[in-house]
Design a protein around this nucleic acid. Sequence first.
DNA 1: CTTGACAACTTAACATCGTTAAGGAGACCC
DNA 2: GGGTCTCCTTAACGATGTTAAGTTGTCAAG
Lengths: 213, 213
Amino acid sequence: MAVGKIDRALVADTALRLLNDVGLDGLSLRAIAKELDVKAPALYWHFKDKQALLDEMATEMFRRMVAGTRIPPGARWRERLLVTSRGLRTALLGYRDGAKVFSGSRFTETVHAVQMEENLRAFVDAGFTLRQAVRATNTAYLFTLGFVTEEQGVHPLPGERREGYDMAARAELLAGFPLSAAAGEVIFEGYDEAFEEGLALLLKGIEAESGIN
Amino acid sequence: MAVGKIDRALVADTALRLLNDVGLDGLSLRAIAKELDVKAPALYWHFKDKQALLDEMATEMFRRMVAGTRIPPGARWRERLLVTSRGLRTALLGYRDGAKVFSGSRFTETVHAVQMEENLRAFVDAGFTLRQAVRATNTAYLFTLGFVTEEQGVHPLPGERREGYDMAARAELLAGFPLSAAAGEVIFEGYDEAFEEGLALLLKGIEAESGIN
DNA sequence: CTTGACAACTTAACATCGTTAAGGAGACCC
DNA sequence: GGGTCTCCTTAACGATGTTAAGTTGTCAAG
């Protein structure tokens, strides 16, 4: 398809586009290569192995997340943590198996440090110790990763629903567990609200434990 | 090795044992079959595909977690959430790539409903609405999953450390980001404390938002 | 203008993987 | 003794990540 010069960025971009069509399981080097009008082994000129390509994809995902996250100027710790957490979730949801790709990879650059530094700075400026700042941001980060991982297990892409989870069948299996049965609706419907309320719990906790608001 | 009757439970048990040696990537059907003194296609008599076997492994992990988690009689919501979250982390840490296997699979039974029901019950009895109870327990659950997933990216098994993460090199890369550089020690050392403090934040938040203690 | 080096690819092949098709040994029942 | 069912084997398929070796184009030095 694309006949121009091939470099790491173009490969990662192409792979990310393909990811939404075929998912992580279908993302073979041969498929990516075909999209670039090239044979599979050519990719080894640019990446030492497939994991290195996945790492580049994760890094590019993060780059786009940072670019797409508008942080209000003068935002304080609370707002920053809300906005960056929502931004991460939105970014991961933008790709099929986005959370899996992301959390199975390691960054190839230090782009992530910019946002991390600004977030930590906001906390420290507000009076948190560095340790408190790290724990707070990291907890939000890991909650978001876990959340989207599970969410994408049910909704591979926003709007799509994965087969094999019938609400009625679930209710029947959980006869004898009335609360768990009723919990189904709360869990599997309204992921947006669930995420927001989880974040809200965390923020409340940060506030309550530090006394900083 | 084992020459007795082969059934789903034995296969899952053997696969879980092998998992700690070879990791998820090395966990091939042929390797599992060899461990059972059997050829790979034999496994298809007991499982419709590899994912079904992984599902059984995840279910067995959960079963052992429940069996290994001593919940003090009369424990209230706070203590229950602490104990079950710690229990989940400990269980996942017990297997190489435990978190990945677990969060990529779906239970084959409803064993999980027992503990879920008891936890929700504890919350509701304490005065939480069902919705609050679900949000609280689910947030803790997803945080734990995200946490251990990242933790095992650095420590495949307790005591082992994955290569490629040199603390000195990291500090050098993050020159210009002093807070992020300093955060390294807080993040990568003391996962136990980090987990406890993340949980503590959450519990504080649950308490603060509901007014229930 | 030729030569040589280097970058960027192709072709061919390898071992391994999940999975399917077909068949065989053994237990059990009529 | 014949037939059926369970549980396994043998053989094979297509696909995968990866490596080795060779090919093409570009470009600078002699």
